[in-house]
Amino acid sequence: MMSRRYQDGCLYREKRKAGPDVWVFRYRDGQHNRKQQLGTVDHLPTKSEALRACQQLRSNINREVRSTRTFGELADHYTAHELPKKTPYYGEVCEWYLKAWIRPKWEGLSLSDVKAVAVESWLGSINLAPGTKAKMRNLMHAIYQHAMRWEFANSNPISLVRQSAKRTRVPEVLTVSEIEALLAQLGEPWRTAVYVALTTGLRVSELLALKWEDVDFGAAEIRLSRGVVRQHIGNMKTEASRRPLPLDEGLAEVLIRWRGCCPYNQDGDYIFASPDRKGTQPYWPTAGMEDHIRPAAQRAGIQKRVGWHMLRHTFGTLIKSQGADVATTQALLRHANVSITMDRYVQAVTPAKREAQSRIVKVLPFPKCSHAADGRGCNC
């Protein structure tokens, strides 16, 4: 809690022994309670009129204390008032950035002493990925926007801070031969999970949140309505993420095969439900990657660091390599920054998207065995 927080104050009517009642505005100045008379009820007959009369007084009071407010106090206020409105994962990430990087540098400075050039220079000196530095810049910008909303500050110096999020190197992707080698080393359910990720481009939060009811085998579509992050079920990342995906015949066969032998195969069950939680929650993505997928990649002789987002990049690269146009690739990846034409006219699964996905399924044949739920494989 901030020691010099924004003063909404308290307006009340006070009786007097002689003369008309008066309106009094009570507020806190540092460690002291203060009060100031606004006028009598003769001049301000209603509370609404008294509230309007104290607006300027309230602004003056807050203006006097905000010049001495520190960035650390503002960060506390932002954490208390704004982060609870965000997803739990987002809140955890913001608090980590504040604790590990932002607070140690800026916590003790007054709001007016945080300058754009200084912040930009500081970001340039940190040995972190551009994307990470851009997120820290954006968090500081959000904190100052919060300050302006609460009238702690008149301007946002972070608006002038330049920080690119552009990657310094091209992300690694898997080749078709590497994918085949990886799938051959995987047991279920991770073999099917990786295959679905590679043929749909789903984010891991979307992949593990899938339920059987989301797969419409008749319409040949996968409908997306939720995401899961750290076992918290929430909304999709963007509105564009809600667009349905095509379900190629070959991919449908893989899912039907998995449904036939997985322990949780009812419509309301997660496709990749964790037996440790008796199917009530999906698997943890980190457990699958660290305990199963990366060890399988090592056994397959893959030297690249395999990760969930790498599978999504691989999907995008394969789609483009199979001749899909840019618009179709963007639509399949469901990025929010697609063109207006795509936003307005490509809302459902189109023939172009079906064809693009089908080409990927054809070049990535699914192994013919090892889809038992215990991960040890089977001879089917």
Rank of each mutant, 00 (worst) to 15 (best):
R149N: 07
A153H: 11
E172K: 11
W150P: 00
F152P: 00
A142G: 01
M148C: 14
N156A: 06
M148F: 07
A153Y: 06
Q163I: 01
P171D: 08
S155M: 05
E178T: 10
A147G: 13
V176I: 15
E172N: 11
M148A: 04
W150A: 06
L174N: 07
T175I: 09
T175N: 09
L160T: 02
S159L: 14
V161Q: 06
I179D: 09
P171Y: 07
T168C: 01
L160D: 15
S177A: 15
I143D: 13
S177H: 12
S155K: 12
S155T: 12
K166I: 02
E172C: 03
K166V: 04
R169L: 01
E178L: 10
A142R: 14
A153R: 07
R169F: 04
Y144V: 00
E178V: 11
I158V: 02
K166D: 14
L160H: 13
M148V: 12
A165G: 15
R167P: 01
V170N: 09
T168A: 02
S164F: 03
V170C: 00
A142K: 14
I143A: 12
Y144H: 08
I158S: 07
R167K: 14
P157A: 06
P157H: 05
W150R: 11
A147V: 01
V173D: 02
A181G: 03
I143H: 09
A181C: 04
P171A: 09
V170P: 00
P171K: 10
Q163M: 14
Q145V: 02
R169N: 04
A153S: 15
P157K: 01
V161D: 10
T175F: 09
V173A: 03
I179P: 04
R167C: 00
Q145L: 08
Y144A: 08
T175C: 08
E172Q: 14
H146A: 03
H141Y: 10
R169S: 08
P171G: 09
